[in-house]
Amino acid sequence: MTYDQIRNTAPCGFEHCRKKRKLKAWHVLLFFVADMTIFLFAGSYVQYYLGMAGVAITELWLLASSLVFVWLMGADFRMTFPIRKPRPLALAGTLVIWVGGFFSVLICNLVLLVLFPQGMVSNGETFSVILNSVPWPAAFLVIAVLPAICEEAMHRGVIQCGIQNSIHSKWAVVLIMGLLFGAFHLSPVKFLGTGILGAVMSWILLSTDSMVYSSFFHFFHNGLQLVLLMILPGVLETSFFGASAFQDDLMKMGSALPVYALGLYMAIFGTAVPILIYVGNWLIRKSLAPVKPAFLPKGKEKITLCKILIPTAAILVTGILITGYGFSQMLASMIAK
């Protein structure tokens, strides 16, 4: 066999591999803007006229557009959507981090409930109307299952892949992803809470290099709230601990939550956030790292304790001050009467 006969042919058993394109930040940001523009001009109408079915359609659109975008860009699907077999201890760590994230969102929503009670109540009422329009299994599928797949494919998949390829600071990636996830929900009232959750899920992906854990976080968060809404109607209508039976009276008072109650919630729940986040991260590292890490890194015990105790003390002091201010306001109003 001459050289001319085998020229331009591949060796037997080998495939000609096309080099995959790496997604960049500007690629995925353009994709995000395009998808959000389509949603504003089309998706919002679909949801308005079709209700829960419209929500399902827009969720599936996020998944389809993400897959098509990766295909058109010639990017590697495995790199864009990293999926690995989950480990029980890492899932447990994800749940612990979720508790810390949930407490953080709880405090943020309570702050907004004090500052903007009307907006928080209206948002909860709209959500309840949509939920009551379909059977519970359908609501669970659309609210808990689909976002954990479709929204994660877009945010932790396409967008975070491009951001990570362009920005090498983990904290910068987490901040950007939180801002984009907050903006994605198109609600000023929900921006801060969803932004925190988006940042936490992006950190989990950075820590595990697997979308399984961030999707599990997303699924558990949405699913638990839905279950609570079904079991205890009205409990979450004002975005956590808002008593729907007293909404009218509270609105007349000018706030849906007393200021001192905000301080108490911050002192009780907020102080648990730093240790919960740390423990959750430690469990994930213990599950995935080849060498099991100590709870407090050797030689850095004092520094690590300071990283936990300083923010805990700051939150506690803030909660106490807010509680004191709230009680002083209440006493002043009682004396004035």
Results as ranks from 00 to 15, higher is better:
175 L>P: 03
177 M>A: 04
177 M>N: 14
178 G>M: 03
179 L>N: 06
183 A>Q: 09
184 F>Q: 12
192 L>R: 09
192 L>K: 07
193 G>V: 07
194 T>N: 11
194 T>D: 07
197 L>G: 15
198 G>K: 04
200 V>M: 10
203 W>E: 12
203 W>T: 05
204 I>M: 10
208 T>Y: 00
212 V>R: 03
212 V>I: 15
212 V>K: 00
213 Y>S: 00
216 F>N: 05
219 F>V: 06
220 F>G: 04
222 N>R: 12
222 N>H: 06
222 N>L: 10
223 G>Q: 01
225 Q>V: 04
228 L>N: 05
231 I>M: 14
232 L>D: 10
233 P>F: 10
233 P>A: 01
236 L>G: 15
237 E>V: 14
238 T>I: 09
240 F>A: 11
242 G>M: 10
244 S>R: 11
246 F>C: 04
252 K>R: 15
253 M>H: 05
253 M>S: 15
255 S>C: 05
258 P>W: 08
258 P>V: 00
260 Y>E: 15
265 Y>A: 15
265 Y>N: 06
268 I>H: 04
269 F>E: 07
269 F>G: 08
276 L>V: 06
278 Y>D: 03
281 N>Q: 13
281 N>Y: 01
283 L>Y: 06
284 I>P: 00
286 K>S: 00
287 S>V: 04
288 L>R: 11
289 A>N: 14
290 P>C: 03
293 P>E: 07
295 F>E: 15
296 L>I: 08
298 K>T: 14
299 G>S: 02
301 E>M: 06
302 K>E: 12
302 K>N: 07
303 I>M: 12
304 T>G: 09
309 L>N: 10
309 L>Q: 06
309 L>G: 04
309 L>V: 13
310 I>T: 03
311 P>V: 04
312 T>I: 02
313 A>P: 11
